[in-house]
Amino acid sequence: MNSVLSINSIRFLVLILTQVLICSQIIFFGYINPYIYILFIILYPVKNNRSLFIFLSFLLGLIVDLFLDSGGIHAASSVFIAYARPIVLKFSFGMIYQHQSIKFDSVDFGAKLSYITIMVAVHHIILFSLEIFSISKIILILQKSLFSSIFTIILCVLITIIFSRKSK
């Protein structure tokens, strides 16, 4: 149990620093940015205290907001995907989730990809809607969400593959 705690705290800090010092400085074509800090929410253990999990996600988003001077947009979208995570888990993993026994290192790759994709897409749509905050620019919102999502998904999948602890 102790190792779960330490892994998640380290992941929390490392992801925030990577996000604000590296990923937010990458700006492809003027507006494409990866937001990899949500890996913390994606990879958080499934068996958890839900209130604590939602609160941690809020804290994560708020710290990123502090660094990026963006008001509360990251906090709002992080809290939202943290709350919606059980639904996405059920949709992507089906029966395995019912038994509460998902290990992200050892699940089917297709299911994992669909899980990450949905989480990232929902997060980015809320993020950019709040950032741009105007219905008349819906095309810009969708465009930014789409391109940034693709970039984030690729990075997230790569990171989970590189750092997976599956020993073969």
Binding site: R50, S51, I54, F55, F58, G61, L62, D65, D69, S70, G71, G72, I73, A75, A76, V79, F80, A82, Y83, L130, F133
Partner: peptide
């Protein structure tokens, strides 16, 4: 409904921050 209420509280706090920043 404590999870849902917590979610609602934190979500509205962040929306308030967002509106302030705009």
């Amino acid at each position: 409904n404590k999870t849902f209420l917590l979610f609602l509280l934190l979500f509205s706090v962040s929306i308030v921050f967002t509106i302030q920043s705009h």
